[in-house]
Nucleic acid binder design. Structure first.
Lengths: 343, 343
DNA sequence: AATCAAACCCAAAGCGCTTTGAATTCAATT
DNA sequence: AATTGAATTCAAAGCGCTTTGGGTTTGATT
């Protein structure tokens, strides 16, 4: 069923039917009701494609998901983020189109999305420091919103981020207050902006307490379970081992716990752990009492919200870029305790 | 830059340019080269939308992701599956469009995708027993491919599945051979087809050895870490506790391990665990030696392959539905060992 | 009864592409 | 030189929608 058929079956012109359906005022309430009724019974849905051609809008938002060439790794937060964004799009009648793309030719994809007029805007995932995609999208004139920020990019753009620096600063402080002085950091790959900021917060907290930052206590890579395990095993094995560990992801923290237990130690007693927790639906941080003390921020909420910000920017291209900085909650769980006294 | 502008700048008609670009034979090699050259320098990409309107093809595949209304949970395998499928689409010039949808109104989404001609086909995720989506899509005449199968659906359709029954049968056998007689099952929600089949394999193995199936040893729900933890704590607490556990997902297995250790037991010695492992990029089952003995099958490969099957079905609508049954590998890790002797 | 807004409705153009059916060119054949 | 047919190229229609720029009815006002 298309517009033509629908309008013929109603004995009206396509114009009138189109207007009735799209809420234009120049059609009588009676006619509008009749049209809507018919659309429902015939199960008529306008073709997005044709609509897009006619209006110049694509009614679609692109998400370009970079897959690291190194491990072919898909960021595990991605599913929840997308789910959040999807809710927003559904509510506004937008489609979400996804491109899975090798790190290396991500830029081509943006150019192509733009020139094919396939989307009205894009969401940028996993921003890095000085991320070249931001000036690129700016030049292309394709509306975009960034999940995170890119240190070093001066031009204004729409973003939503967790206050990673502050979260890790607070968490490190919290460990300090518990008496910990040797605090390790198991971080994401530090060309990623979020990881850079977390380290910055961690270092700032240490320096504020006159603890010198020890590179031997810092690790940084893609945040897999195994990376958490290896790093922790390694850290605990060295002399003057840390009594506490800051960890950038719950998945790596699970690996850290594995290493701690395998070393015959008890987490929360011999070694304290704080992790960042993205509040993923399938990876809840324990039940009533969190397993891990954590800095928590829902990535799903972030998806929902960032999508709204992007749609708003598209609807009103003149408004200045919006920004939103979310504070992570610091949830106390069972993985932290007072620093053990040295024997 | 659009076709019209491109053709004007070349002094050719739109027809010729279109044909040159799409590889039709009735254009001279010289002209074709000239056109391709110009397309490259002007960075011309045809609008998918217009192309779709003209050809009736959407050049897009829909993925409808159900989000369980219960926990708003996004299946964690989803990211890797999508990544696999995305590779295939990129190679064939298709877009992937994603709808995140409440369990409840998933059917509406299919109808709407169809009537808006938004996609050329869809991938069905998370099939259940007697899944109503399969006859629905069949009636709609919308090409589709199922990741998994739906027991009880008699009509033929395209699917790709892991041989879940066989995998769990073999794994249970393996535990039996190690001397285990009380073997528990921590399964996914059993209205899901894969979970049903796994249980079937598990039970078949037990019965083949004249072990009676004990409902007290079986748990079934959405496979979160916490579910694995709670179930295992529970199982180990009862009298005549199991000496081995079959687990339906690596994430729940992590929870199981947590419970085992918290109970002061050693995994692989006091309690053996075998889990299914989807080979997710961010959740590798250990490094060189797997943490868990596991039935393994790459969900990313599944995505890549199923997408190919769907595209093939779309390209040739007359071919009979293809099916592919993948056998899971049984990887021996450190989580299994001989059954402890009873004191 | 003539006038004039409102209110309602419509025909047709246009969005960027493919494709049909026809026209043109040109070398080879009669 | 006229004919033919293959090789090229083109103009125009059409895909399903929105939107412009009118029309035609009304019913109230003069």
């Amino acid at each position: 069923m298309n517009l033509k058929e629908l309008s013929q079956s109603l004995g009206l012109s396509q114009t009138t039917v189109s207007r009735a359906l799209n809420g234009y005022p120049e059609v009588s309430p009676a006619t509008r009701a009749r049209v809507q009724e018919a659309a429902k019974t015939f199960n008529y849905h306008p073709s997005n494609r044709a609509k897009g051609l006619a209006t110049g809008k694509a009614l679609a938002i692109g998400h370009v998901i970079p897959v690291s060439d190194k491990h072919e790794m898909v960021n595990p937060v991605f599913g929840d983020f997308i789910a959040g964004a999807g809710e927003t799009y559904a509510r506004h009648g937008y489609e979400m189109i996804l491109s899975i793309v090798d790190d290396s030719d991500e830029e081509k994809v943006y150019t192509s999305l733009k020139s094919r007029r396939a989307v009205d805007g894009v969401v940028v995932h996993g921003p890095r420091m000085n991320d070249p995609r931001i000036p690129l999208l700016n030049d292309l004139g394709l509306p975009f919103a960034v999940h995170g920020r890119a240190s070093g990019c001066t031009l204004p753009y729409t973003w939503l981020d967790v206050n990673n620096r502050h979260a890790f600063l607070r968490a490190t402080d919290f460990l300090y207050d518990l008496g910990h002085r040797r605090i390790a950091l198991i971080n994401g790959a530090e060309f990623m902006d979020f990881a850079y900021r977390r380290r910055d917060g961690y270092e700032a907290a240490l320096q504020a307490h006159d603890i010198c930052v020890d590179p031997a206590l810092m690790r940084s890579d893609e945040m897999t379970e195994d990376f958490g395990y290896q790093s922790t095993t390694d850290l605990l094995g060295q002399n003057d081992a840390p009594s506490a560990i800051m960890c950038s992801s719950l998945i790596s923290a699970l690996g850290a716990r594995r290493a701690i237990e395998e070393a015959g130690l008890v987490m929360g007693k011999d070694v304290s752990v704080i992790t960042h927790d993205d509040d993923l639906s399938y990876l809840q941080n324990g039940g009533d009492i969190p397993i891990f003390t954590a800095t928590r921020s829902s990535v799903r909420y972030a998806g929902r919200r960032l999508a709204e910000m992007l749609l708003a920017a598209i609807a009103d291209p003149l408004q200045p870029p919006q920004n939103e900085l979310l504070e992570a909650e610091l949830m106390v769980g069972r993985s932290t305790g007072p620093a053990p006294r040295k024997e």
